[in-house]
Computed example of a mutant assay.
Amino acid sequence: MTNSLKLRSAQPNGTPGVVASAVYLRGRRVADIPIEEAGDWSRKPGHVVWIGVHEPSLDLLRHLQAEFGLHDLAIEDALKAHQRPKLEQYGDALFVVARTAQMLDRRIAFGETHLFAGRGYVVSVRHGASTSYTPVRARCEAAPAALSDGEDFILYAILDFIVDNYMPVIEAIQSEVEPIEDSILTEAPTETHVRRLYQLRRDLLRLRNAAVPLVEVCRRLEQPGLPGIDASMYPHFRDVSDHIRRVQEEIESLREVLAFAFETCLMTGQAQQTEITRKLAAWAAILAVPTAVAGIYGMNFEVIPELRWRYGYALVLTAIISVCGWLYWRFRQNRWL
């Protein structure tokens, strides 16, 4: 065995951007290795190198490209990190893009994960808001029999973890929407409610656009012909597809609830405006009576009816009060006041 392949403990985190870098044999960790030795280990029969990096630099991606022979287009996509979920095949290697999501400051923060999978290696590249895949690695290492299936099982485990993390986001939104929905039916909606409902609807649409394309990715992984994907893994990828469809159903259901709540807010606001308009119109009609009478008697004409009549003021005031009282009663009857 050459010196470069000697079994030794490495410090992957010493390389900026590298979260973990290990080699496995029959589902058990053999060693933590530096990036410079990853290619040699991946070419050893039965060995699988699993590397996780976070927001890597171009130099780090070039190192990974040199070790595993990654395609230039895949490297370019992994560096830009603004890709739609997809599956690309480059020779005997697969390149998978998935969108991640998590709640940060009451908003859905999105990130990306790019997965390179080929004979003897899996490289995960994380960008933006994304939960660490350390729990995935720990779960796989706790089940060496399953991990011994190789690269396709690691690919499945990461995709399954990404999809499972959509549900806490949906549950967080559900727990926030329900109190808002209840308050809308019992009290007047505020501008804050309307703004928040609009934000949640927009975030859910973005979550749907991030999750649903993974159905097509998993469908392709279920079909024969892709390198490195054994037929025994097809049910696992089918299970991920089922989870995504469930996520899609939950999103659609929640968007309907938000649409109902949003429309209820708007209709309630319009009803309140109509109520206020009616009250203002009713009071304007009532006040128009004394205004009109006072306006007539306020004109500076020399001859005014009942100008010198002793009971003129009393009669006019009584007439004004009577008419205003009758109008008030009528408006109350019609529920305008």
Rank of each mutant, 00 (worst) to 15 (best):
K6E: 15
L7G: 10
Q11S: 12
P16D: 15
G17W: 13
V19T: 14
G27D: 13
G39I: 07
W41I: 01
P45K: 10
V53H: 10
L58S: 13
L60Q: 02
F68G: 00
L70P: 04
D72N: 06
D77V: 02
K80A: 05
A81I: 01
Q83Y: 03
R84L: 07
Q89E: 11
G91K: 01
T100C: 09
E112K: 03
A129K: 06
S130C: 15
C140Q: 10
A146L: 15
L147W: 12
S148C: 07
S148K: 05
I154W: 14
Y156M: 09
D164T: 03
P168L: 07
E178L: 08
T192S: 12
R195M: 06
R208F: 03
N209E: 14
C218Y: 01
L221R: 03
G225F: 03
M233A: 15
Y234A: 15
F237C: 07
D239L: 10
D242G: 12
E249H: 08
E250R: 03
E250W: 01
S253N: 09
L258H: 00
A259I: 04
G269K: 02
T274D: 14
R278Y: 06
W283S: 04
G295P: 08
G295E: 13
G295S: 14
Y297F: 14
V303N: 13
W309M: 07
I321F: 12
